Amino acid sequence: MTAPAAERGSTTVADRAVRRIAERAATEALEPGAVEAARGSASVRGRRARVGVTVTLPYPAVLDEAGERVRSHVAERTARLTGLTVPSARIRVRGLSPRARSAGQLAPPMTGAGAAVVRARRPWSQRRLPVAVFALAAAAVCGVLLYDVVSVHVAGHAPARWRVEAMEWLSTHGPESATASGVLAAVAVLALGVWLLVLAVTPGRRSGLPMRPPLPGVHAVLERRAVAGFLRDAVTDVPGVGRVLVRVGRRRARVRAGLEFGEQDGARRAVTEAAEAAAAKLGLARPLRLRVRLRTEPAWRAPAATPGSGSGHASVPAATERSTLR
């Protein structure tokens, strides 16, 4: 009796295929890029397979928990993809690598005096508007000129009057003529060429401040308006501070705050510390140089002297200023 077609033949999974699947499964156990698989082993006997993988885990990590997650994932994933029975997987931790970071695990920011300046460039602007305007103008001029040339050479029409007059004007108003109109035209063409060269070799987007790269190949930009708003909110939270004006440039930020009530020296220190703490949290590649200025509002009055403090309180200037470099 002939066996059914579905029961004929056999499927054999090679040891090499099982080993490659186990190695790939080990790298998928934790976050992407967190586990590195060095080498693996596999032995297939009938419908059962034994696998083992040598891995490098990220640091810091709890070894027993991370190893158990890798082991269970390798066994389950290999069994599901190969159709074999995988009783267990052997995982050998070869080492720990601090460079194996997940996509959501960012490098801790460096703040304070030891913070290093990370080189990060502004992203290049695509400059769609000037390129589109220049391309449309050039296309329109070339299209009109091409239409007139084709109509003359193909249809036998007379050349357009504007082209004849333009050619006559150009023949008598060249650079050697030294006329005012020729000089102005040459200056305009030169200015246009210089402007296009500047656009080609500069990144543009001066409103964005580059941030510290969290991962290799990742570029982030923070708008100046957002930086100004963040600094303004931080300074406004200081008790006694009312109106706050913030101007952010490419290298420095100017903070002007108005004091409505309270003691000036303490408010000045609190405003400066709040601005510095907020600037340190921005994560910019080049820390901003802060210039903090505190002025008293017209309704401000000096605090009353407490008993035992002497004959009175020392007069303070109406405006104080402090510059800090970070």
Rank of each mutant, 00 (worst) to 15 (best):
M1D: 02
A5G: 01
A6Q: 07
E7L: 14
A14M: 08
A14P: 14
R19L: 10
A22T: 11
A29M: 01
L30I: 02
A34Q: 12
V35N: 00
A38I: 14
R39Q: 15
A49T: 03
A49P: 01
G52T: 10
T56R: 11
P58N: 02
A61R: 12
V62E: 14
V62P: 14
D64H: 15
R69D: 05
E76G: 04
R77W: 01
V86Y: 03
P87Q: 00
R90Q: 14
G95V: 02
G95T: 10
L96P: 00
S97I: 03
A100L: 15
L106I: 05
L106T: 14
M110H: 05
T111S: 12
R119Y: 05
W124K: 05
S125E: 06
A139F: 06
A139W: 10
V144W: 04
V144N: 04
V149R: 10
V150G: 13
H153G: 03
R163A: 05
M167W: 11
W169K: 06
S177F: 06
A180T: 12
L184F: 05
A185I: 09
A188E: 12
V194S: 08
L196V: 13
T202K: 09
G208R: 03
P213M: 12
P216S: 07
A220S: 06
V221F: 06
R224F: 00
G229I: 02
D233L: 13
A234Y: 07
V241P: 05
L245M: 09
V255Q: 01
R256S: 14
A257W: 00
G258D: 08
G266V: 11
R268S: 13
E273F: 02
K281M: 06
L282T: 09
R286I: 00
R286F: 08
L290T: 00
R293D: 07
E297S: 14
S311M: 00
V316S: 07
P317I: 10
T320I: 06
T324W: 03
